[in-house]
Design a binder for these strands. Structure first.
Length: 670
DNA sequence: GTGAGTAGTGTTTTT
DNA sequence: CACTACTCAC
């Protein structure tokens, strides 16, 4: 293995055999490289069996890339090596052990939309008259779970409030439906480790090295899990940067990285402070913003690179102006300066900012890709079919069943659904069970037409339930299901226009994309299971991978949120919407989490290697109305000398006396 | 039971 | 503005 190119700290980090290792790795300090080399080193030089190594990352994408690199370095295929998120690790273990908690191993994983749907139902039905927002409740429940606040504690903490009762009801219903949400994956896994020491030992016996990336973003639950997985014979290595902690809203505790040595004894700390990515101008600007934060580990990033280009600031009059400037500039960079589109990124605070940029880039015929936004997944038509698959997997999942019971229309409307639900809850049965007994038990309650509709629905479900869960399923299953469902006809009815079926075709394409995904899945698995397909969609974001495969050769400009940009790097970064209320976000100002907004800006700045653009609009549409906006209050924390205009003057002619004085003054005042 | 039309509501970030 | 939830005429 070639470790010659590493600097001394990196070398230490890769080869150290300390049981407890904390790597404080600044932005662009070669962190991923160190981690992958360390794993490869363990395998190659210490003969650690790959299956005894668990690497936990923040996204599956990062994990996939790391695995790719480890395999490259070791020159072997490593099927036993686990690299993935906390969630996917927990998922894997739960499939094996969850029966201990009274769940069926084919549980379904509820995504955000599912959760919100269920909560909406609970809020409406069990607590009528109260005005509670399902989305807000969802995030409150999630925060409770990730901070390890049990239902009982919630009752104590919020006495008299309705929230704990919803929390309680929600948990009950989920169990009844054999469903887990994202947080449950960690909670239930945790529960197993605590309640079943023999399982814990079994897992620990095959786990000698734990590595955790982005440690600054772990929450209490995840830290607890780590402590439970750790044992005296194992080693733990965590990598992180407190300045890049941007998930406090999900319960992440920067504290964890600051207090790491308290959790795991005899910790060795190594700092990686050389930045290999950015020009000193970019680092200086980023430092200007982050250094205003109290409570950070003192560190000084440095780079061997020169000053490079100054930061370009563009004050646009409105969002359209901003879009025109950015896309025009991108066009020029690609066509005049010959810069590859995939070296360029547009970063924004919130997803909805991407829309305008997409439209403009499409119009200018600049290739682009949007990262993050779940597009395909979120589309109603894809969701419909996916929900059917969930129903085949588990017909007693009422939420899913009710979503599709009348798609396409089968004359099972609100009234009927109400009656079904009522009898189901009365008899403590699932809606599907009620439908199955319908003819014998309730013929008086329903008209013959509806009974036959329900019967046909039941037969459809049962037929395809068998076909989809057969092992292996036929590759034709998907198509014949679509046909029998009449989904194309349904789309035509919904979206078709007299002389224009483009919308229908587009939507059907999405369905076909899903079919392709399914067929690829069938081919890739030895014994494909429907449940694995669905959970891999929910958890591993298979759709992202798919999207990237779709246009492999085509380099494209990347559009993404700052959050999903973490860990990535680009030569040229456009940070758009650098505005008060948007980059220190309005909500953050209220919750006094400005420090996190600074870190967010810091992450955004440090994604750039060569050149950074900051843009903001003086007026932006909000709720459909134009509103006056101001540049971000962080702007004044960027040293003047980082800016393009000053620097250009420096390059062209010697400094005038007043400018030299101004520069000196700004330096002294720091 | 369906679908068009309207009134009300809400917008951070993600596994 | 965009999305939903609800009303009312068929």
């Amino acid at each position: 293995m070639n470790l010659n190119t590493l600097n001394p700290q990196q070398y230490e980090a890769v080869t150290s055999s300390d049981k407890s290792l904390l790597l404080l790795a600044g932005a662009g300090s070669g962190k991923t490289r160190v981690i992958t080399l360390r794993i490869a080193y363990l395998i190659r030089e210490h003969q650690v069996p790959p299956s005894h190594i668990v690497g936990l990352t923040f996204t599956n994408k990062a994990a996939a890339e790391m695995k790719e690199r480890v395999q490259q370095i070791t020159g072997t295929h490593l099927p036993g090596l686990f690299l993935g998120t906390f969630h996917s690790y927990a998922l894997r273990k739960l499939r094996r052990y969850i029966h201990l908690l009274g769940f069926n191993r084919h549980f379904v994983v509820y995504d955000e939309t599912d959760v919100r749907g269920l909560l909406r139902r609970i809020c409406r039905e069990d607590f009528p008259g109260k005005k509670v927002s399902p989305a807000q409740t969802a995030s409150r429940i999630s925060l409770c779970k990730n901070s390890m606040i049990s239902i009982r504690k919630a009752f104590e903490q919020y006495p008299g409030e309705i929230f704990p009762r919803i929390y309680h009801e929600y948990t009950q219903t989920m169990k009844q439906m054999n469903a887990l949400d994202f947080d449950d994956l960690l909670i239930r896994f945790n529960e197993i480790l605590v309640r079943f020491p023999e399982v814990r030992q079994e897992i620990q016996a095959h786990l000698s090295h734990i590595l955790v990336d982005e440690f600054q973003d772990t929450n209490d639950l995840q830290l607890f899990l780590l402590k439970k997985l750790f044992h005296p014979q194992s080693s733990i290595c965590v990598v992180g940067d407190d300045d890049q902690s941007i998930y406090a809203w999900r319960g992440a505790q920067v504290r964890h990285i600051l207090e790491f040595q308290r959790y795991f004894k005899d910790t060795r700390t190594i700092r990686l402070e050389q930045n290999y990515r950015s020009t000193s101008t970019i680092l200086q600007a980023a430092h200007g913003i982050i250094s205003k934060n109290r409570l950070r580990t003192p560190k000084k990033l440095w780079t061997a690179k020169g000053r490079g280009k100054g930061i370009t600031v563009f004050p646009a009059c409105d969002e359209e102006d901003e879009v025109q400037f950015v896309t025009g500039e991108i066009n020029a960079l690609i066509n005049s300066d010959n810069i590859s589109p995939d070296r360029i990124a547009v970063l924004y605070r919130s997803n909805n900012q991407s829309r305008h940029f997409e439209a403009a880039l499409r119009k200018k015929r600049v290739p682009y890709r949007v990262l993050g936004g779940k597009e395909l997944f979120d589309r109603a038509e894809v969701k419909d079919i996916l929900t059917y698959l969930k129903v085949f997997l588990n017909p007693h999942d009422d939420n899913s069943l009710l979503r599709v019971i009348n798609v396409p229309q089968r004359f099972i409307g609100k009234k009927t659904v109400e009656k079904l639900r009522h009898t189901a809850s009365q008899q403590k049965k699932s809606v599907f069970q009620v439908i199955c007994q319908l003819e014998s038990l309730f013929e008086d309650d329903f008209s013959p037409a509806i009974i036959s509709s329900l019967g046909r629905f039941q037969k459809l479900i049962e037929k395809y339930r068998k076909l989809f869960t057969a092992s292996p399923p036929s590759s034709e299953v998907f198509s014949s299901f679509l046909n029998e469902l009449g989904y194309y006809e349904y789309l035509t009815k919904m979206y078709g226009k007299k002389d224009n079926n483009a919308e229908v075709e587009k939507r059907y394409e999405n369905i076909l994309a899903l079919r392709k995904l399914y067929e690829d899945f069938l081919k890739s698995q030895v014994s494909p299971r429907l449940s694995d397909f669905i959970t891999s969609l929910a958890i591993d974001n298979l759709l992202d991978k798919k999207k990237e495969k779709k246009d492999p050769g085509q380099p494209a400009v990347t559009l993404l949120t700052i959050h999903s940009a973490k860990g990535l790097e680009f030569d040229i970064v456009f940070l758009v919407g650098f505005e008060e209320g948007l980059l220190p976000h309005k909500n953050a100002l209220e919750k006094q989490s400005i420090a996190e907004e600074r870190r967010l800006s810091y992450v955004a700045f440090t994604r750039a290697g060569k050149k950074l653009y900051l843009t903001y609009a003086k007026s932006r549409k909000r709720y459909g109305k134009n509103r006056k906006t101001e540049v971000s209050s962080f702007f004044s924390d960027i040293p003047d000398e980082c800016m393009q205009s000053l620097q250009e003057e420096n390059d062209e002619e010697p400094l005038s006396l007043t400018e030299a004085w101004k520069k000196l003054e700004s330096r002294l005042s720091k």
